[in-house]
């Protein structure tokens, strides 16, 4: 590993200034992904700006009933927070489905959003990768790609985003708070990550030097009927082959509100807008759920070895929607 400078920021403004002063800077949160990538040689920062001790470690209810989660709140604390468990169960479930107890204690909310793909070609300097080194090609396209994307991929990149948390945030209509040169701004969580297109090196819409300061969950007076379900190769401590986060409100047997997002299928959490459109106003039945999910997954373009993901994602989504409908009717 190349040696590097280190600055511990005590305010958001100071962090942004320290970052702007050095072109090779990286923000350090819990480090669970960044330090690993530095060991692998994928990340080679000149200086780390440590933002893990910024005063952004609180979960607070705002006057309008929304919930603001500071960027340095650890994944385990967020999953265990009473307001998160009670009002946004899909978020708590998604966090607990990810990583290990040790990693969740270190990983931050902001860092979780900014973690990089676990595509083995991205992590291996001896292999071509357009995300790591634009223009070198994609080793996974004709290589080992069982875990890779079926939706929204490009010839440049077929990687998936690994976060579980981000999938729940997308379905829950959360917003990401950013701070940069031009002050603060908010981006819908579902639009924070990008599709690869011709620039797979850019995972998100974040601007150079911008810092995630928090995540805001929309106003909820009670429990948002929501759930997260994940399929993986082993029962625990593995990335998603496919996952789904869903929000479903049923009124008089009809769907009044629907939010649906898939994980493990694309370069970003895949917000299923087409399925949501098909769901709202329709009957809350398994047949209607199947039709809506099929409308979304019709856009899937599986690769040689990952066609299994389409029926897997379909089954997960229909199951979660059906359970939510049953719970809502009860």
């Amino acid at each position: 590993m190349r040696s590097f400078g280190y600055v511990r920021a005590t305010s958001v403004e100071e962090a942004a200034r320290a970052f702007a002063a050095r072109p090779g800077a990286r923000y350090l949160g819990g480090g669970t992904n960044l330090v690993d990538l530095m060991k692998l040689g994928v990340e080679r920062p000149d200086v780390l700006v440590d933002v893990s001790r910024l005063p952004l470690d609180r979960v607070e209810e705002l006057p309008d009933g929304s919930l603001r989660v500071g960027a340095t709140v650890r994944n385990s604390d967020l999953a265990a927070h009473p307001l998160v468990r009670d009002r946004y169960p899909a978020l708590s479930q998604a966090l607990l489905a990810g990583a290990s107890g040790q990693l969740r204690n270190a990983a931050t909310t902001g860092g979780n959003l900014l973690q990089r793909t676990r595509c083995p070609y991205f992590q291996d300097l001896s292999k071509p990768c357009n995300k790591r080194e634009p223009g070198t090609g994609c080793g996974a396209r004709e290589g080992v790609h069982r875990d890779h994307a079926v939706l929204g991929w490009s010839e440049q990149c077929i990687a998936t985003h690994p976060s579980d948390m981000a999938v729940a945030l997308a379905a829950l209509d959360a917003r990401v708070e950013l701070y940069g040169d031009e002050g603060g701004r908010e981006v819908p969580a579902a639009e924070f990550h990008r599709l690869p297109g011709d620039h797979p090196e850019r995972d998100t819409v974040i601007r150079p030097g911008e810092l995630i300061t928090g995540v805001v969950l929309p106003t909820a007076t009670g429990r948002v009927p929501s759930a997260y379900r994940k399929a993986r190769d082993r029962a625990s401590y593995a990335f998603a082959l496919a996952s789904v986060a869903a929000v479903l409100r049923v009124s008089d047997g009809a769907v009044a509100q629907a939010g649906l997002a898939f994980g493990g299928l694309a370069h970003r959490p895949w917000r299923a807008a087409r399925a949501e459109e098909a769901l709202v106003g329709g009957p809350a039945t398994a047949q209607a759920f199947e039709r809506a999910v099929d409308a979304e997954l019709a856009a899937a373009r599986p690769l040689r070895d990952n066609a299994y993901k389409v029926p897997l994602a379909r089954a997960l989504a229909v199951d979660v929607l059906t359970r939510l409908a049953r719970a809502g009717a009860a």
């Binding site: 480090g31 669970t32 385990s76 040790q102 204690n105």
Partner: peptide, 9 residues
């Protein structure tokens, strides 16, 4: 709190 000491600078 338990953590992986190999990933903590």
């Amino acid at each position: 709190r338990r953590m992986n000491s190999c990933l903590l600078l």
